[in-house]
Simulated assay, not measured.
Amino acid sequence: MSLLGTPPRADARFLRRVPWEVFAITLAIGVISVGNLASASRVAHAPVWISQIAWLGIGLSVALVSLSADYRMLHLVAWPFYALVILLLVAVELHGQTVMGAQRWLVLGPLRLQPSELAKLAVVFVLARFYHEEGEKAGGYTLLELWKPAVIIAIPFVLILHQPDLGTASMMAAIAGTMVLASRVRWKALATIALTGLLVAVAAWFFVLHDYQKKRVLTFLDPEADVLGSGYHANQSMIAVGSGQWAGKGWAQGTQTQLSFLPEQHTDFVFSVFAEEWGFRGAIVLLGLYLALCLVGLRIAAQARERQGAFLAIGAVAFLFWHVFVNIGMVSGLLPVVGVTLPLMSYGGSSAVTVLTSIGLLANVGTRSERPGRGGFA
């Protein structure tokens, strides 16, 4: 098969190989997202759900169209894309728009771009190429052999952390770290990395974290220490999640949402809106959809034709898993509030398109995987 498209005679066979379950699950979450945002934005009289439909439509279209191009083409553009993202992050440092004390956005005419979201994809692309070229290491990677992945991760991590955007920097590190672990790392190297991470965390507390970020961690350790101050967001979110009980209060009937007690209810705390209105059973359905998407992704990674496809799929699954894990933990009081959005559910153009690009990439790898009984397709 050509890297640029599908041979005409292979159209039917190509379509049979597409993992349509990936798009079916994604569409289901997207529909839930639109309905949830319609409720979350009623009080503010800001119909963000209309914009969400547009962004989801754009992202899904890009994902579907990209199926015609073999994912192995990313081998050629991984480094140029990475370099472009680094330049955009530097541009944010020099000319970025500051909102609520954070300098994270570039305004390009009518577009408002958040390059830190693109950095997650750039790191996945480059690490997939790196591990494909390196090949499998007998016995696993030693600490010295990890210096190249460390540099690849560290450059965008430091630039994003300086914005400051601890949530996005942490997510990028978690996604990249998952890919590194999937490459097989020796136990001594893992122990050294863990110890180094602990020392870096201590140093970051004293020299890197801002006061408001420290307050979030302290509030997590003692949620009732400052209920009306730094702990307000977390406490209101937990009230919303808990008040939904088993069946929920119904669409647009959540008091925490409709009375505007719940902050950032269309972005970071969108799950709290959903849990209050649809209860525990609704939350289980939504989390089940995310779990199904991750399991399908792991199957695709296991059946990938070569290391590049496997690592791209692992990166896409890690992208979804860590965002869902941290966001749900954050809004339910199990993790500190770090400003991580819920994939496809939270409002945001850059976030929606980035997530759907990773899902399209996952489907692309799955279309060209070695699934038994479906026929070869090189």
Rank of each mutant, 00 (worst) to 15 (best):
A301N: 06
I300L: 12
K120Y: 08
G309C: 08
L312P: 00
A24N: 07
V124C: 08
W55K: 09
I314C: 03
L88K: 00
V331R: 04
L84G: 11
E145N: 13
Q236E: 14
F280D: 01
A310I: 01
V65Q: 09
A247Q: 15
E224L: 11
L356W: 06
S369I: 06
Y71E: 11
F125W: 10
I25L: 14
V273D: 00
R104F: 05
W278S: 06
L113C: 02
L198T: 14
S260K: 09
H132T: 06
E276Q: 13
T196F: 14
L293V: 02
A204C: 08
L144M: 10
L74H: 00
Q52I: 05
F14V: 04
Q236M: 12
R17C: 01
K137N: 10
S41W: 07
G373V: 06
A69T: 12
K188S: 13
G315N: 02
V18C: 08
S358R: 00
L259M: 14
I25M: 12
V126H: 14
E133M: 15
S230R: 04
S237A: 15
L60M: 14
V185Q: 06
K137W: 11
R299L: 15
F130M: 07
L84V: 11
Q52E: 07
F311V: 09
I155D: 00
L342M: 13
N327L: 15
S41A: 15
V107R: 15
R216D: 07
L190A: 09
G333H: 04
A91Y: 02
E306N: 08
T98A: 11
P110R: 07
G282P: 12
I314D: 01
V99Y: 06
L262A: 01
R184C: 11
D11R: 05
A46I: 03
D268V: 13
L218H: 11
E224P: 01
D226L: 09
I155L: 14
A154Y: 02
I86M: 08
L121E: 04
G167N: 03
A234W: 03
R42L: 15
G242S: 08
V62W: 09
A173K: 02
G360R: 05
K215H: 09
L291Y: 04
V18T: 05
H132G: 02
G96K: 09
E370V: 11
Y82P: 01
G197A: 05
A150N: 03
Q52R: 04
G309R: 08
A12L: 07
S230T: 03
Q236G: 06
R112H: 13
V227R: 14
G96M: 04
F220H: 03
V151N: 06
A313S: 10
A191L: 15
V270C: 09
V85N: 06
S116E: 07
V331P: 08
I239K: 05
F261V: 11
Y131C: 03
V18H: 05
V355W: 04
R281Q: 03
I175R: 10
L4R: 12
G59D: 11
L146P: 05
F261R: 03
A310E: 12
A225M: 15
L291T: 15
W322A: 05
S260C: 00
R299Y: 05
F23R: 07
D165M: 13
V158D: 03
S237K: 10
R307V: 12
A301F: 02
K188E: 14
L298T: 03
